[in-house]
Nucleic acid binder design. Structure first.
Lengths: 270, 270
DNA sequence: GGAAAGAGTTCCATTATTTGAAACTCGGTT
DNA sequence: AACCGAGTTTCAAATAATGGAACTCTTTCC
């Protein structure tokens, strides 16, 4: 199907290699990569060389291993600032977190997965990339379901096809049918819950962030544990969450049109 | 010269385009990109298509503009965790920041520039990609000079060639000669200062982080303002900084060898 | 209303790049 | 001394990239 695999020629293949290295999650030898790769030895070798050359991979000479390169960090900085909701939403997320004293997540959809782009943890002091850039499943997280619920039919179909439906807990929804019923309920209710579907003892309430035209921009959530709170307790936060989500959406709309088309600049000077 | 430009074939060219988009720092139209690009229209068009397809660029349909894509954030998360000093240095940076109550930076060299990989701001609560991933000049920052001072001759020559030597303040060193003399002093002294060379009123003390073999791993710095402190005052922090830098270097060495080569696994079971 | 300009997109023969099987190197075994 | 595995290089064939030019819209201008 519409797999973005080798449809994109050499560049697509090279990026596939990059993903593989990142997916290992640890320094990886060329031979390990080769074993996991669809490419023949010489081809893979050239890709790895090129990517290392370019700083997209980092080669550890002592250990003879590869890892994702620091050039990615530089590029991601730009991506996070320009293409994510995080800079726009920052003040609202700050305020919400301060007000509620609970952990707040901001997430967007990326290739069928939940991509966390920001986080506020009321208690702990600081977290950095360890949170932003992290990915999670869409079908069993509050933010994921909140976003799926407001996707168009085509997008939804494509995204559902990317879900693994792995059972994390007894409460995980493990079929597209069950999930779709839940999404219907979420649409009606206006917000989503995660009732220990991803991790036992962890619950959350999540609100979609929708653009003017109803397009899904992202979602935000307040997470807590069953020790400290219940779904019923979280439900009371819905109005605050909704207000915050709407404020973010509005701000995002404003940000998207900074450059008004000047009407008829009659005489054009330098 | 050893420019990693089109030596890397199609993949290198595509990544060049990616850099360009990121460098704009704002949503950019195809035609703007074209004007700034060495590639002919059809070629650039194909690159942009491919990269967008791959999630390395994000296309804003409403505004008809491109920006760096969220896939980069996902990849950078892995890069930051696996290939930067940040995870290893985190506890030491936390401790130093708490102890001194001042802003602490952790940086590494990337393609001749200072790449900040972590930061602790004693006062403000949290910063994310907004700091990690940021780049700065090497020739006029404390961390930059600390790292340059311990580079091998070849690496140093190559890195010097990448400096712009732009004059930011009256105190900026604007020639390779002046910088080299300073680097000599830094080697002798063991640490570097930034005496308002990058920004008026901002000073810092920086310590290189060196591996066992003397290789430059990164640098860390304590930054303050001339209002609150002086170079003389910062000098007193040198021992603390050195201790922290050495602790990080040691930890990094340990981390680099988790996988001992098992000697002679005689019988190989599954 | 229609010509003209501009931005974005597609075409396609030419050309340069990628491809990958095989051969080679190098360190360490047996 | 032969062997082995990991990494590296080679080179002719196959494939994908290239870019000038033509095309389609939309917008602007008279």
């Amino acid at each position: 199907m519409t797999r973005a695999t080798s449809a994109d020629g050499t560049v697509g293949k090279a990026l596939e290699v990059l993903d593989q290295v990142a997916a290992f999650g640890r320094p990886v030898r060329f031979s390990e990569l080769l074993a996991a790769s669809p490419f023949p030895k010489a081809t893979l070798y050239r890709f790895v060389q090129t990517l290392t050359n370019q700083g997209m991979l980092a080669f550890d000479a002592e250990r003879q291993t590869y890892g994702p390169g620091l050039r990615l960090v530089r590029l991601a900085h730009a991506a996070w600032e320009q293409s994510s909701l995080a800079p726009v939403a920052r003040p609202m997320i700050d305020a919400l977190s301060a007000q509620l004293g609970e952990t707040v997540h901001l997430a967007q959809l990326d290739h069928g997965h939940v991509l966390y782009v920001d986080k506020r943890n009321a208690a702990e002091p600081i977290e950095m990339f360890s949170q932003a850039g992290r990915i999670g499943p869409a079908y069993c997280t509050g933010v994921g379901k909140a976003m799926l619920a407001h996707l168009g039919t085509d997008d939804l179909q494509r995204t559902l096809a990317m879900q693994s439906f792995h059972r994390f807990t007894a409460k995980t929804l493990t079929t597209a049918e069950a999930l779709c019923a839940e999404l219907e309920a979420i649409r009606t209710r206006g917000h989503a819950y995660d009732d220990e579907e991803h991790e036992v003892g962890i619950i959350c309430i999540a609100m979609p962030i929708l653009g003017r035209t109803g397009r899904v921009l992202g979602a935000l959530s307040v997470t807590t544990s069953t020790d400290r709170n219940s779904l019923g307790g979280l439900a009371r936060l819905a109005p605050d969450l909704r207000r915050t989500a709407e404020a973010i959406a509005q701000e995002a709309d404003i940000w998207r049109f900074p450059e008004q088309s000047r009407p008829t600049p009659t005489a054009g000077a330098a």
